[in-house]
Every structure is written in structure tokens, then in C-alpha cells.
Write a protein that binds this DNA or RNA. Structure first.
Length: 428
DNA sequence: TCTGGGGTCCTAGGACCC
DNA sequence: TCTGGGGTCCTAGGACCC
């Protein structure tokens, strides 16, 4: 049997850990630039606030009902996630983290009769130790465990843990479970299934294997097997990320080249740091920037440049240099760039680097410098030491650069990770 | 006017090989 | 006018997840 632990309304719950006065009140967490709703408290859901809705579309409701809005604070969520995951890890020999707020526990070491009580203890331990409410589902497959966890979330009578073990329980759970809510069934698959007369998870599970295979191909067949109780989906994560992205939408479109270069340099530096954290190097780099896809009044422009390196690297100055070369090649004056990003590709372990016979760089020296820079950042904060290009806007006097590039007016303090914020909060 | 960010996997089709 | 068969590798785009 497999158990899924899923944090309830995770980002909102993280904010509430440090604001217990917001318990019982409608709270939402917003995406970058305070654009869309990405997490909702139960009270906010009850007001009809949909997942992913742009804030400006519900602004009057927010004002009228006194909905509390937070800008996203990923340093805080990441830190609380680590604490939740470490408690989960303590309770099993086989744990797989699936996302920032979910993980699968294998229960082979716990007798069946004790599994529900065992998971109830985990739920209490996380609530007590971290302050985050968690729901758990127990079932013979991951997809069914997901279904069970949704029932655990919905009905308080389960005390946070719901089990699907017998055939009777499985049929009862699936017959009132909407097909579009099944893990792995997205918008496209839902439309196809509805056209075939299928609206519940049970109706899908009772069709033939070849029906699932023909309509939804391999992923659909796996979901079909899982709904019938077979553990078919493997989520063991690769040791290394295969791509690393940093991208942002700007509060106001950028046209000025130096300002865009500063953004790209920072995105690239952030990606490179992630690369080194997982002890890897990359051999390809993609830079992109484009106009707002929501605007029909301006001509759309999409800038997209790939650079392939002769020797893989994780060195920030080197990668930033390539990123800016790519940008300068494709940048077009006058375009209203609303979103931009850097993607690192062709990633491999740093130990597997093959030397280039004609390489003229002193890579050992570059890497020593990089280690010193990382060490300074570790000790004195993430942006303690930067490349000049990461600060280009400081040197321009152009009025347009005085507009804030990003917007996050409702950001909570870094309660757990930034010393200055911790001192401020304690003083209050 | 305002509309997020970061991933993985699968498939179809093209290029290329003998 | 007729013009093989079988295989691998790579890539772009779609679909899905949180």
C-alpha cells in the first residue's frame, strides 16, 4: 500500500503559520507581479474565487469581502516544505517527494490494520511540529491514493486520512469522482472522454484497456491501470534536473536594451547557481523574450536564441557572457518585451566533463573563483556579490528605468530564512 | 490596463544510415 | 510510368503536473 501526503492549501497555510489571526478568514496567495491567484484558503474557495484567476477580475470581491492577499514568498514555502518532507521521511524507508507540498510514502513496513492510525499520527506530527495541515490517502496505487487524499480533505470525519483498500471502497470512491479531477486527466483528455460518454472515474476504469490506449495513448493506459488498483506509475526522480529555467513577467514591458540585459544576466546567474547546487554542468543555453500574448493591439514578437558550448560549464561569468551574446544577437529595439527567461539544457554531472583539446580557458582557476563567490553569497546573502551586468540599471539615468520591474506589494517577511526579517518580526 | 513559474514525459515526423 | 525496407537518433510541440 502507498500513502500520499498532501498539504492543504499549502502556500496559504504557510502564511497562516506566522499569522494565526488569519485562521477562518478568506486568504489568497498571488503569482509573480501579484497577477493571478495560485493558492486559496477554504473560505476564499467558498467565495467562488477560482484557481488561476487574475486578481484584477476579482478585485471588487476582494475589497468587499476583505480577502487577505499575499504576494508569493517562495523562500518561506521552500523552507516549510523541507520541514514537512523531513518528518515524512522519518516515517518510512521508501519516500518519494513529488512536489513542493506532496510526497508518497510506501507502507510495506506497517501491518495493514495499523496503517490508518499510523498515518493519522503523521498528520498530527506535521501539524504540531510545523503548523501545516496535511491530508493523506492510502491505496494500492498512487492515482487511487490521490483520490483517497481528496476525500480525506473533503470530509472532516476521516480525521485527515482516507483508505481505499477493498473492491467495495474502490468502486464507491470512483463512482462519485469526476473524471477531470483524476491525476493525469487534463483538459484535453477530459473533453475526449466526455465525448465518449464518460463523466466519472469508475466509468473510465470499467472500459477496456484498448479503449484507454487508443483514446489517450500510453499515459492514459497507465492511469486506467492505476484506477483499477495496479501500481503502474513510476515517479522516481532523476538524480539531476534535465533543464533549469528562470523566467519572469515584468510589471511593465521593457524596451531598453541595458535593462533587458540586466534581467537576462540575473536569470542566467540564478540558473547557474541551481546548476552548481546539484553539482552539474550544462552544454546548452536558451535565451528568450517576448511581447505580451494577451495584447492583440501590438504586433507579437518572439526572441529565441540557443547557444551550444564546446565545453560544458556551470561558471556564472562564462554563462552570463553567452546569454548576453545571444540576447544581443536577437534583440530588436522598440519591441515591448513583457516576459523573458533563460533555460539551461544538456545538463550532466560535473564529474563527467570531457575536456576540449583546443580549450584555451584556465577552467581550474575559473572554478576556484566561482567557489569563493558562492561562499560569499552563502555567508552574506544571495546578492552579496554580483557581476556588473547584473546591475546595469543603476548606471542609467533614463526615466523609464525608474519604473519598478516587478510588483509584489503584499509580500510577507522571510520569517525563517533571513536574519534581518527574523529580528524585525521578533521586535514587533 | 491588469493575466505565474518550473518541470517531465510522450509522440510524430524528419534526417540520416545501410 | 515504374522507384525498398528497416532501423536509429533528434527535435519540436503537445499534454500534463504542481
Amino acid at each position: 500500500m502507498i500513502a500520499l501526503a498532501d498539504c492543504n492549501n499549502f502556500f496559504v497555510s504557510c502564511e497562516r503559520v506566522f499569522r494565526p489571526d488569519l485562521e477562518g478568514k478568506p486568504v489568497v496567495v498571488l503569482s509573480g507581479n501579484d497577477g493571478c491567484v495560485v493558492s486559496r484558503s477554504n473560505e476564499a474557495k467558498a467565495l467562488g474565487i477560482a484557481m488561476g484567476v487574475p486578481l484584477y477580475q476579482i478585485q471588487s470581491l476582494v475589497d468587499k469581502e476583505g480577502v487577505v492577499c499575499f504576494s508569493s514568498n517562495f523562500a518561506l514555502y521552500g523552507d516549510l516544505s523541507d520541514r514537512v518532507m523531513s518528518i515524512l521521511r522519518q516515517h518510512t524507508t521508501h519516500f518519494e517527494q513529488y512536489s513542493i507540498d506532496e510526497g508518497f510514502i510506501h507502507l510495506d513496513h506497517v501491518p495493514e490494520a495499523e496503517q490508518k492510525a499510523y498515518c493519522e499520527r503523521i498528520v498530527r506530527a506535521i501539524k504540531q511540529g510545523v503548523g501545516i495541515p496535511v491530508s493523506m490517502g492510502i491505496a494500492p496505487s498512487k492515482t487511487l491514493a490521490k483520490v483517497a487524499s481528496k476525500y480525506a480533505k473533503k470530509y472532516t470525519g476521516y480525521h485527515g486520512v482516507c483508505v481505499i483498500r477493498t473492491e467495495e471502497q474502490r468502486i464507491k470512491a470512483l463512482q462519485s469522482f469526476e473524471i477531470g479531477d483524476v491525476w493525469g486527466i487534463g483538459r484535453r483528455a477530459k473533453t475526449k472522454l466526455q465525448a465518449a460518454g464518460i463523466t466519472t472515474a469508475l466509468q473510465f476504469a470499467e472500459r477496456s484497456a484498448s479503449f484507454a490506449q487508443h483514446l489517450l495513448h500510453k499515459p492514459g493506459l497507465l492511469t486506467w491501470k492505476e484506477l483499477r488498483g495496479e501500481d503502474a506509475i513510476d515517479i522516481t526522480q532523476l538524480p539531476l534536473k534535465q533543464s533549469i529555467t528562470t523566467s519572469r513577467t515584468f510589471a511593465h514591458a521593457i524596451t531598453e536594451q541595458t535593462l533587458l540585459e540586466e534581467q537576462i544576466a540575473n536569470f542566467c546567474a540564478h540558473c547557474a547557481r541551481q546548476l552548481r547546487v546539484q553539482r552539474s554542468v550544462c552544454q546548452q543555453l536558451l535565451v528568450y523574450a517576448h511581447t505580451s500574448s494577451f495584447r492583440s493591439d501590438v504586433e507579437q514578437h518572439y526572441l529565441n536564441e540557443i547557444i551550444t558550448l564546446s565545453v560544458p560549464t556551470a561558471n556564472t561569468p562564462e554563462l552570463v557572457n553567452y546569454a548576453l551574446t545571444a540576447l544581443r544577437r536577437a534583440y530588436r529595439p522598440g519591441v515591448l518585451y513583457k516576459k523573458a527567461g533563460v533555460v539551461l539544457l544538456k545538463i550532466s554531472a560535473e564529474t563527467a566533463v570531457v575536456q576540449d583539446l583546443f580549450d584555451e580557458k584556465d577552467r581550474e582557476r575559473d572554478n576556484r573563483l566561482q567557489r569563493v563567490l558562492d561562499h560569499i553569497d552563502d555567508r552574506h546573502g544571495k546578492r552579496a556579490i554580483l557581476l556588473g551586468t547584473q546591475l546595469s540599471a543603476l548606471h542609467t539615468s533614463d526615466d523609464t528605468t525608474n519604473l519598478p520591474v516587478y510588483k509584489n506589494d503584499h509580500k510577507s517577511p522571510l520569517y525563517t530564512t533571513d536574519l534581518r526579517d527574523i529580528i524585525t518580526v521578533k521586535a514587533k
